[in-house]
């Protein structure tokens, strides 16, 4: 074990994957100079030990032009013909530039061609919300891609998961989009230095509880945990916190079982409300375990509004511990103590 940051864990997983398989390449803008911090060595300079370009060479560390559509398409073609690319798309709003390739080629090719293609490619992108980067850089677009059959969607919320899920994504023969939260980049915990793989499609019960289930996604996970702590201390409410980790495939069983046990559900995620992951999970719970519900389902999401620049305006847009705690109180029917 060693203490690793979320970003450091991603770098470690990339290094392990590059070492494990010659067919793995990293392709993206500014990856050579390690601008986004996941292709570097121990120090800041190119000479530091472990720098990816030094270690693996330019054949496997492909610094690209600013051509997202071309990059994504070329990565797809490369994956169909023997490589296992990790594509670093940097900001997740840049995925829109490559929408055609992601939706029409990456997601559809295997299916359309009757299983002739396999598409072992990982698209990593960072969601820069909450960092005053304004509307063009603050997106959380993962629900849009949940709507595209053929893409696996991952949103790690801890350093261990960032590492283990990335290894599984690289080893998957199917395309995986990983949405990383910049707000979590600096979060730290003990992470195994050994190789490990966190399976796709398996939720993590972050904390067990009996009164209410909180399904939290991405940076909402630490906020939900903080809310749970407050409620346990102040109101004696026992909160179960579940992090789905993978949104496609979604570990429906874990969520349904938990809600069947607690009878109450709060869902927190940083994406927009309409057709978000929270909407999907709400519908699933209502369809499958309606009889277990003791209270209406509550969603804490970003509103259906663009993200404003000013810190004074942006802060209120996402789920935080206060909003999540308030939703839990409403759901379990306790009033906040004065």
């Amino acid at each position: 074990m060693s203490v690793m940051s979320y970003l450091g864990a991603i770098g470690a997983a990339q290094r392990e994957a590059m070492d494990a398989d010659e067919r793995v390449i990293i392709i993206g803008e500014d990856v050579e100079a390690n601008v986004y911090g996941t292709t570097g060595g121990s120090g800041k300079s190119r000479a530091s030990e472990g720098d990816f370009t030094q270690k693996y060479g330019r054949n496997r560390i492909r610094n690209t032009p600013i051509s997202e559509e071309g990059i994504v398409g070329a990565a797809a073609g490369a994956a169909m013909t023997g490589l296992r690319p990790i594509v670093d798309l940097s900001y997740s709003s840049f995925l829109y530039m490559a929408m055609d390739q992601l939706v029409n080629q990456v997601a559809k090719n295997r299916y359309m061609f009757g299983g002739q293609a396999s598409m072992p490619v990982v698209f990593r992108s960072a969601m820069f919300y909450g960092l005053n980067t304004g509307a063009h850089h603050s997106d959380r677009p993962y629900p849009m891609f949940m709507n595209v059959p053929g893409l696996k969607i991952v949103a790690p919320a801890s350093p261990s998961d960032a590492k283990g899920l990335l290894r599984s994504a690289v080893d998957s023969d199917d395309p995986v989009l990983i949405f990383e939260a910049c707000l979590l980049w600096g979060s730290k915990e003990d992470v195994s230095e050994e190789e490990f793989w966190t399976p796709l499609g398996v939720a993590r019960t972050v904390q067990e509880g009996t009164d209410v289930t909180v399904v939290a996604i991405s940076s909402s996970v630490p906020e939900a945990l903080a809310a749970a702590r407050t409620l346990a201390e102040e109101e004696g409410v026992s909160v179960e916190v579940i992090d789905p980790r993978t949104l496609v495939p979604l570990d429906k069983e874990a969520i349904l079982k938990s809600v069947a046990k607690t009878g109450r559900l709060v869902i927190a995620e940083p994406a927009h409300r309409t057709c978000g992951a929270a909407a999907e999970i709400s519908a699933m719970v209502a369809e499958e375990v309606f009889d277990s519900l003791k209270a209406p389902i509550a969603r804490i999401t970003a509103p259906d509004m663009q993200i404003p620049f000013s810190p004074a305006l942006e802060k209120q847009m996402y789920p935080d511990r206060v909003k999540i705690a308030a939703a839990i109180r409403r759901t379990v029917g306790v009033a906040q103590r004065a």
Partner: peptide
């Protein structure tokens, strides 16, 4: 770009 990617894998491998 799918063909470009196939050319890329030829080159890398």
């Amino acid at each position: 770009p799918i063909a470009t990617g196939a050319a890329l894998s030829s080159k890398v491998l």
